[in-house]
């Protein structure tokens, strides 16, 4: 069990500044996701940790020791690549044996470890198969087995589920999650899929444009993003302008707590499902459009401008509701759900 942290890491490819001053620490046995849109530099971060790329500045620590000058083969940080990178000319067993054979462990010990790992991965019957004869899920199990059998200090997963069919993907996510808990390996998962990151990890690091935007629990990332950038990446939301004074934010929809922010202009973020539409309670509004999506219906509503409420212009909001009975042109009432609403800059 090993902790891992990177400190003020920068990396450029030519004029492209891929990683900007990233610092991230992962505790021993923790499962952390690095989440970001494609091309945000997250795979590069993984390669830096593994030692496949060298950072321009900053440091990588594994188990508390700086390993900037340790070559990839001695770091004990094993990557499972997106395309699994199985050696096509070796059988499943030989693939798993590859890293063990290099370590010069006795043959019987290796055999025992391989068998145990095949059993954990539920692919014992495929030991003598070549990778080309395996399905996507089986290939992934082999790739995981090959990495886990080495008891890596840090396991790095690079978009491991994106090459799998949707149904299989959920199975494999659960499998990996369970495996990680059982083996207790410090794991870093890189993904662009927020559901995946939320589902699997205890903490999520959001990287956008090469900067670490927020490093927090999935729930905080979703409900309390620090910036509009993070909030937008995670999901659609309404933003309502207002002012903070004395740790209180006030806007047309009411007052909200803003204890962590200093006075000045700010925005209230409300996810579409944090507003409630009804026939009686809340502020009067007019329904502009309606999109029926089955389990939810998305309404676009407009609150008329009103000087008394502090609305110099009409306010348009989007709401997700399970009630699909409202029709465009009709009047309705909206209110903010209990304890919802997050103030950000």
């Amino acid at each position: 069990m090993t902790s891992m942290h990177v400190e003020n890491v920068n990396k450029s490819f030519g004029n492209n500044h891929v990683l900007k001053n990233i610092s991230l620490s992962v505790q021993s046995g923790e499962f952390v996701s690095v989440l970001g849109p494609s091309g945000c530099g997250k795979t590069t971060l993984l390669k830096l940790i593994a030692g496949l790329e060298m950072q321009d500045s900053g440091h990588v620590y594994i188990g508390g020791a700086c390993c900037d000058n340790v070559p990839a083969r001695k770091r004990g940080a094993v990557i499972v690549f997106q395309d699994f990178a199985l050696f096509p000319h070796m059988t499943v067993k030989q693939n798993i044996d590859f890293g063990l054979a290099v370590k010069k462990i006795s043959r019987s010990e290796r055999e025992r470890k391989i068998m145990a790992m095949l059993d954990v991965m539920q692919i014992s019957d495929k030991a003598e198969f070549y990778p080309r004869a395996l399905s996507g899920g089986q290939k992934q199990r082999v790739a995981l087995a090959r990495a886990c059998v080495l008891e890596p200090r840090v396991l790095l997963l690079d978009e491991p589920f994106s090459n799998l069919d949707p149904g299989l993907r959920d199975d494999m996510r659960e499998f990996v999650s369970k495996l990680q808990r059982e083996l207790g390996i410090t794991t870093i998962l890189v993904t662009h899929d927020k559901e995946e990151a939320f589902m699997l990890s205890g903490r999520v690091a959001v990287i956008i444009d090469g900067c670490l935007q927020q490093y927090d629990t999935p729930e905080n990332i979703y409900k309390k993003p620090h910036t509009v950038l993070v909030s937008d990446f995670i999901g659609e939301a309404n933003y309502i302008s207002g002012m903070i004074s004395n740790y209180h934010f006030s806007c047309a929809l009411g007052d909200f707590d803003a204890a962590e922010l200093v006075d000045g202009e700010a925005k209230l973020m409300l996810r579409y499902d944090q507003l409630i539409i009804s026939n009686s309670k809340g502020m009067p509004c007019r329904i502009i459009s309606k999109v029926y999506k089955g389990n939810v219906t998305t309404y676009r509503v407009e609150i008329e401008k009103s000087e008394t409420l502090g609305l110099p212009e009409a306010l348009t909001l989007k709401i997700n509701s399970s009630d699909s009975s409202f029709e465009p042109g009709h009047k309705a009432f909206i209110r903010v759900a209990d304890r919802a609403g997050h103030v950000l800059r």
Binding site: A72, K74, F98, G99, V102, K103
Partner: peptide, 12 residues
């Protein structure tokens, strides 16, 4: 890809 994989698995 495969060479990188081999090197993180500990091969020289």
């Amino acid at each position: 890809g495969l060479e990188q994989q081999a090197s993180v698995l500990g091969a020289g």
